[in-house]
Design a protein around this nucleic acid. Structure first.
Length: 694
DNA sequence: CGGCCGTACTG
DNA sequence: CAGTAC
DNA sequence: GCCG
């Protein structure tokens, strides 16, 4: 549905017929001279979005004079939401729908346009004066909230002194500091934190689950100082200093009293949990660093937009690291200890903590093409080069692209389903899609196995797309692909489930195709979802699981780790005896070390997964980034799917987080024997790869 | 200072 | 090959 | 951007 715009320039100059009908504006708008049109290319959506009230009408007209388009209805083209002063963030969400609000949307109050006009420039949008305040009773730390200004100095000094034994409790709150409510939430929040990961995971949590969680967390605390060293630390020997330094900063008050270097020195049962339930639908993330993360995220997007790949990665790494901090990071010293955060980022973290803004960021927003670039890059199959080219060609809106730009077929589809592909998919819907595909697979071949990968497998409450890993015991890629391509996929098209194929390895070599990217829609739904199928030969299942589960940051880390160990990791397997040339370029293909077992691959890489504890229990560790597999297991644990769980905890080593699930071996063995074939967890979220390895 | 994952698909 | 995506 |  095309948006309705009201702007004389647009209508008269280009006169697309479809836009003309809403041209009810009584008096025509007097456009300012071209070079004064600071809003050119921007699309404003006002709230309330009408010109009934005289002052607002005035503002709207003014904005249009300076080149803005007024979106009469909400649409994908909207770049800015201009909110009346008496409205709050909650009103915005209510009016537009929080699922429609994307990070790329600039939300500012009514003062923004006139101020910009006054200074004849697009002002930074995050300035306090332009901010729309959070709704009533939303938690004092709700995003966009302004923490009280604090002295930049005080926290730093505090930290210098208490570095060694900085516990979270002490660290987060210098004495002279009034308690930041968000920080205090630690305890209660950490319990609630894990909620939402139950097997059914919808959005609501039952109280019984909370109770379960309480119990489990209590147990973790009870057993948290088991003597245990997972020192192997494949990375480097000198690690212990840096590692413990950074980890010390993350200890919770629970461990305050411990002095020995027992597990409690490195284990924080809450660590990592914090990122498990990020963006959980309505309930906001409780991460105390949310504000900082948002700012850094904007910087990352900025660098992405200007094509600075490596800075983008650095920022994203820092964000990942920050996300799993349970404490508010307010100072350079504190931040610099975190792996992935160096001096420069640490300074920025402190700046954000102290001033609640980032000067560097404000100096970036001024390019008027920025919002358009962002808009265009949101299209599936459109990156920076393409987006820039289009802008250079004069395209200003999605409408322009639709009618005038030359698009590849896939880009056309991406454009037609712009909102669909950019919206998040609730976990429950991901499962529903997976179930449909699974059923179709079963009909074709009962032995086919299907695992949901991607962020879903990492435990996210919602996902950007649907990743399905498809394999079959003892089957080759060719066999699996044949079943899918010849039978399952055609059937799913016929059922009306699959809508289109986007990357299907049809044109090229028919032999080695291993992926199928397309779009699907639930019966009765008009919403198209991006769905990726990965065909995996049985022997490569483990490697494929890693590839398709890790986020890209995790995959890069673990592959880098492999290459440092003269190995190579890809979606097919882990290879050894790799010879690399001058610039790390590969000389030899290497020989296959392991491909089938996810756990074995971790083990070979030195990310040991099995440890034995005194008392006959053992723990199994999977090393996914931040959030993991174990989050899924954890959900199952909560539901009692795994009996006799002794404890759960998490350890961070550099930039890898280990989630630990301690399980009573005897019970585990008995259970495993009983359900021989995975049936226990093979419902969607889970996979054989996690079963005790044999 | 130089490296920063390794691969598949499209045009 | 470049561009895009995972 | 970070890291060695």
């Amino acid at each position: 549905m095309p948006a309705q715009f009201s702007n004389r320039r647009k209508i008269s100059a280009k006169a697309p017929p479809k836009l003309s009908k809403k041209q009810s504006s009584k008096k025509s708008i007097q456009l300012q001279p071209e070079d004064a049109q600071i809003f050119r290319g921007l699309v404003f959506y006002f709230l309330p979005n009408n010109d009934i009230a005289a002052p607002r009408r005035k503002r709207i007209e003014k904005a249009q004079e300076y080149g803005a388009l007024w979106a009469r209805e909400w649409s994908a083209d909207v770049t800015h939401v201009i909110v009346d002063a008496n409205l709050r963030m909650s009103d915005v969400e209510k009016a537009i729908g929080s699922d429609q609000l994307k990070p790329r949307h600039v939300i500012v109050n009514e003062k923004y346009p006139p101020d910009c006009i006054e200074y004849q420039v697009l002002l930074p949008t995050h300035l306090l004066k332009f901010q729309v305040f959070p709704g009533p009773r939303r938690g004092p730390e709700a995003e966009g909230q302004q923490p009280r200004e604090k002295s930049p100095k005080a926290p730093s000094e505090h930290f210098n002194r208490s570095k060694i034994f900085a516990t979270a409790g002490a660290a987060a709150k210098p004495d002279n500091e009034q308690e930041e409510p968000a920080v205090v939430t630690h305890e209660p929040a950490s319990f609630a934190a894990v909620e939402g990961f139950g097997p059914s995971i919808t959005t609501k949590k039952g109280e019984n689950e909370d109770d379960e969680l309480d119990r489990i967390v209590a147990e973790v605390q009870a057993t948290a100082d088991l003597p245990l060293e997972l020192e192997d630390d494949s990375l480097e020997p000198s690690s212990s200093t840096t590692a413990s330094d950074s980890e010390d900063g993350q200890l919770t008050r629970m461990q305050e009293k411990k002095h020995k270097r027992s597990i409690s020195d490195v284990v924080d049962p809450q660590l990592g949990f914090s990122c498990m339930r990020k963006n959980e639908g309505t309930s906001k993330s409780k991460n105390p660093n949310l504000r900082t993360i948002e700012m850094l995220d904007k910087m990352a997007h900025y660098y992405d937009r200007i094509g600075d790949r490596w800075r983008t990665i650095s920022y994203r790494k820092a964000i990942t690291a920050l996300k799993r901090q349970t404490d508010y990071i307010a100072t350079r010293e504190q931040a610099i200890g975190i792996p992935g955060i160096g001096e420069r980022l640490a300074s920025k973290v402190e700046e954000i903590a102290c001033t609640n803004k980032l000067r560097r960021l404000e100096s970036t927003v001024t390019d008027p093409n920025d919002p358009i670039l962002l808009l265009f890059m949101g299209i599936y199959q459109v990156g920076l080069p393409t987006a820039s080219r289009w802008i250079a060609q004069g395209h200003q809106s999605l409408e322009d692209l639709k009618s005038k730009a030359d698009l590849t077929p896939n880009q056309r589809i991406g454009l037609d389903h712009y909102d669909d592909f950019l919206s998040r998919i609730p976990r429950s819907e991901v499962m529903a899609h997976a179930d449909i595909v699974r059923r179709a697979c079963s009909n074709a071949d009962a032995q086919i196995q299907l695992v949901v990968g991607g962020s879903c497998r990492r435990g996210s409450a919602d996902c950007g797309d649907i990743d399905l890993i498809i394999t079959k015991e003892s089957a080759s890629l060719e066999q699996i692909r044949t079943i899918l391509v010849d039978t399952v996929i055609p059937q799913l098209f016929q059922d009306g489930f699959l809508q289109v194929g986007l990357a299907t390895s049809r044109s090229r070599s028919t032999d080695r195709g291993s992926k199928w990217h397309g779009a699907s829609a639930l019966p009765g739904s008009q919403v198209w979802r991006r769905i990726d199928l990965l065909f995996v030969p049985w022997d490569e299942f483990g490697a494929a699981l890693i590839y398709f589960t890790g986020n890209d940051i995790f995959n890069r880390s673990i592959r880098l780790l492999a290459s440092r160990k003269k190995m190579r990791l890809n979606q097919h397997g882990l290879y050894g005896d790799i010879m690399r040339g001058e610039k790390r370029e590969r000389i030899t293909q290497g020989r296959l070390l392991e491909g089938r077992s996810e756990e074995r691959i971790f083990e070979i890489l030195g990310l040991q997964t099995q440890h034995h504890l005194p008392g006959g229990a053992s723990i199994r560790i999977m090393a996914y980034m931040g959030i993991s597999l174990e989050s899924v297991i954890l959900g199952k644990l909560v539901a009692g799917a795994i009996p006799r769980c002794i404890a759960l905890s998490t350890i961070q080593k550099r930039d890898v987080v280990f989630h630990i699930c301690e399980i009573d071996l005897a019970t585990e063995a008995a259970t495993a024997a009983k359900n021989q074939t995975t049936s226990k967890w093979s419902k969607g979220t889970d996979q054989p790869g996690l079963s005790p390895h044999n």
